[in-house]
Design a binder for these strands. Sequence first.
DNA 1: CTTAATACTGTGCGGCGTACAGTGTACAAG
DNA 2: CTTGTACACTGTACGCCGCACAGTATTAAG
Lengths: 262, 262
Amino acid sequence: MPTERTSAGDPAQTLRLLWRAAEDPATPPAPRRGPRRALSVDAVLAAATALADAEGLEAVTIRRVAQELGVVPMSLYTYVPGKAELLDLMMDAAYDAMPRPDTAGEPWRARVKAIAEENRALFEVHPWAAEVSTARPPLGPGLMAKYEHELTAFEDTGLGDVETDDCLTHLLGFVQGWARSAADTRAAQAESAMSDRQWWQANAPLLEKVFDAEKYPNAVRVGSAAGEAHGAAYDADHAYEFGLERVLDSFEALIAGRRRTR
Amino acid sequence: MPTERTSAGDPAQTLRLLWRAAEDPATPPAPRRGPRRALSVDAVLAAATALADAEGLEAVTIRRVAQELGVVPMSLYTYVPGKAELLDLMMDAAYDAMPRPDTAGEPWRARVKAIAEENRALFEVHPWAAEVSTARPPLGPGLMAKYEHELTAFEDTGLGDVETDDCLTHLLGFVQGWARSAADTRAAQAESAMSDRQWWQANAPLLEKVFDAEKYPNAVRVGSAAGEAHGAAYDADHAYEFGLERVLDSFEALIAGRRRTR
DNA sequence: CTTAATACTGTGCGGCGTACAGTGTACAAG
DNA sequence: CTTGTACACTGTACGCCGCACAGTATTAAG
């Protein structure tokens, strides 16, 4: 599995699990034979998420989650069909838990910016979520509530439904891409036990021989200027702020264009 | 290894390998004792890249590359210190092989758009490259040539060095993020043997119960509008064109602002 | 009490990167 | 021409992974 991906499991089972809390209360669960269940889907989900938060997504193995729950690995398969479905549950639960402050009345730019901030916060609380591809999203209550909420930020912009979806996709793509870069930078630092600054300094002697200012004049000039400006080759906070302003500016141009031709 | 990452190996060894072709010709390689080398770094690199192109990055294992070369796995370690260093070589070689057409004389927007297209082409030739995090880039001749080339697209925009680097980072982040989404969508289709359209249709009966237009009015309306417009929930080509125009528009606004305050 | 459904457990498969300890080869020194 | 040594190359082994499968224990239904 090169990249973790949602909706990689059996769709029917996944949907049943995702919407398990919304089951018809008129049909109480039939009494089951066999031993009492020692755990629950939510317990497995909580343990897996806690593990991912603390040690990253690669620590979330069936064996390890079972260990956290004091249970033998294969037991988990009575709660969850497999690892793919567990990941869907984790993502949808994370979406569901996101705060959705009401920004009605504020101008669209502030509302859209708030959406970006909420997603940034998601990736700060659950850094592992940034690594998960949601090309096919987990179609659970969390995603639906999130999508519904985020769309309202584009109300009264004059954009059509399709353009609104395009803009939201673009915005969320930016935030997730940024979160991945930021997480990768942190991970590289942790693994090499070297900060970005230290790493560049450690490599400096070797690089000097190779970063020929005659051969690469722009690269050497711009690279060192950027490095000095941020104190590192890549400053995540700066990249976020710069990128978000660019995204918002581009929406502004789009909205202005639509209003003009309306 | 959750995400593949460049520059995860020993920096000194990595740099020596990356710049191996640029070694001082005044010091010819000392004659070596022992058996003649059956392969070469470039042969290993070529085999690994061919494998990644054909079967994806997760097919690139030491065992498998060795098998392709008709050699036992451990032999590769005499050419390359480990898998991390091999990945750096692959990325830098891919950068090095990118065409760098001269767009001097064209307006900046066309030049910057060409940079995006070149990177899109990179990810089409080597889809695996999109999965690789370059938070710490492979500091080889390929990256240097690419960076130098890409910076020239921003000449005469009036942007400062730091802003130019910010813009380039933002642009490349967009293209790579898009390439990942596109690749993930393709991978999901291949793995489930279901197109996006088929997948949504297969899930439709279950989704109808759950996509409550009263509870999620905007989501249901916008989601179905977007789905109908593109014939799928996610249309990669459309997302690329829409996103690229947004990125270029935002650069236009930034450049106009800088010119005004200059 | 018997039957059957369910929960849980133990073992095993084929894969991964690579540490480590060999073995065989070819050049340099004597 | 012999010997020492640097080097290329090989085989084995370790601890991980998801999970298929077969078996056992527990409970409720008939």
